[in-house]
Computed example of a mutant assay.
Amino acid sequence: MTIHLPNSAGELKAYEPRAEPLTFDTGAPLASRVVFSAAHVVADPLADTTPDSPAAVDWDATLAFRRHLWSHGLGVAEAMDTAQRGMGLDWAGAAELIRRSSAEAKSVGGRIAVGVGTDQIAPGASLDQVRGAYEEQLAVAEEAGAQVILMASRALAAAASGPEEYAEVYGHLLRQATEPVVLHWLGPMFDPALEGYWGSSDLDAATDTFVEIIKAHSDKVDGIKVSLLEAQREIDIRRRLPNGVRCYTGDDFNYPELIAGDDRGFSHALLGIFDPLGPLAAKAVRTLDTGDVQGFRELLDPTVELSRHLFQAPTRFYKTGVVFLAWLSGHQDHFAMVGGLQSARSLPHFARAYELADQLGLFPKPELAEARMKNLLALYGVTS
């Protein structure tokens, strides 16, 4: 069966989908790396909402997707930017997501870490208000029994006048945290409001501040999540971490080499691309668990082209591609998104994502993915 897909030049090109998917066993727990998939939320397509309305979430489908990730041995990073925090999912929705997903994790024995931020307040808030907002969310996460990820804060970026105020706010929060947390550095390519985080737009200066905060509170830092899309900078930061503090790569461009590591260390993973790649990523890490670095790279390196496509600029709209692939894969019955974000990418972008994912064998039922892709093409007036 042939499908005609539009390319970036607006031309239709014939594509022959693969007939058989890859198969994945759930297998043993992952051993050599701690691996989290940041997970998307499934919108309620029947809710009468607008892009400015509070998110309407299909809780059954959302939790079912998390069970899918846990079944393959992955941890779930919950209520992060992949779940559209700050791009459709407000704090009230995120708090409910944290409570529900944490309870679900306990019921199935899944690992979960949840995002704690300040998105209940607007930029223009004082540093005291920023601290209070973080404290409110920290209490919700700890009450739910989840590991905490201290997310980068738009409000703190707007309120802080320099690195000293970042050190003061983070020091205050780390002293309060019951258990070691993950610190999160999200670059401005993911959220332009985070430009100049850690008190400087000079990444070398910002890195120094970040590392000094970690060193001052290393007993309260389980690890760091770095999402700057610069492999060498992540490696440099990783080598400066105190003993016992993990680096979780958030680099959706260079993750295979960073997870594989070198003779001076490696990164664990907390990645949005592992939402669509979950079973394949788990298989690759199990291969790495045996010491087979080449086999790991042979499985994961071919996925980078898809990841770079989904995360192309404007990078913050990668969530659209992630949910698109979940729909094609049969994890949800529709391609509606919180905040109407399904409109954030073009038809040629979707077509290329479908082609790359199909070539990797990611679709459990290729015929379903093909039928849904054809339905989308028809919606855009492509019927050939």
Rank of each mutant, 00 (worst) to 15 (best):
L280M: 12
F253H: 13
P276K: 13
Y248A: 08
N254A: 15
L277Y: 06
D252N: 14
N254E: 13
I273A: 04
L288A: 10
A281N: 02
L270A: 01
A269H: 04
F274W: 11
E257G: 14
A282Q: 03
G272N: 04
G261R: 04
F266G: 06
D275C: 15
A284L: 04
P276E: 12
V285K: 01
D289Y: 12
E257H: 14
I259W: 02
L288H: 11
F266L: 12
T249N: 13
R264F: 07
T249V: 10
G250F: 04
I273Y: 00
K283C: 00
R286A: 08
A260R: 07
L258F: 02
T290D: 09
S267H: 14
G272L: 02
E257Y: 12
D275M: 09
D251S: 13
D262L: 15
F266H: 15
A269W: 01
L270I: 00
D289R: 12
E257T: 15
F253K: 09
S267V: 06
N254Y: 08
L258V: 05
A269G: 05
A282F: 00
G291I: 12
F253C: 12
L271P: 03
D275Q: 10
G261E: 06
G278Q: 10
I259L: 11
Y255A: 15
L271G: 07
F274G: 01
D252E: 13
A269E: 02
V285N: 03
A284P: 03
A281P: 03
K283A: 07
Y248F: 15
Y255S: 14
G265R: 00
I259N: 04
L258R: 04
I273L: 00
D289S: 14
L277H: 11
D262H: 11
L277T: 11
D251L: 10
A269S: 08
L258G: 03
A282Y: 05
R286E: 12
G278F: 07
A282N: 06
A260Q: 01
L280R: 13
K283Q: 08
H268D: 13
I259V: 15
D289Q: 14
A260C: 09
E257A: 15
G291C: 11
G278D: 10
L277C: 09
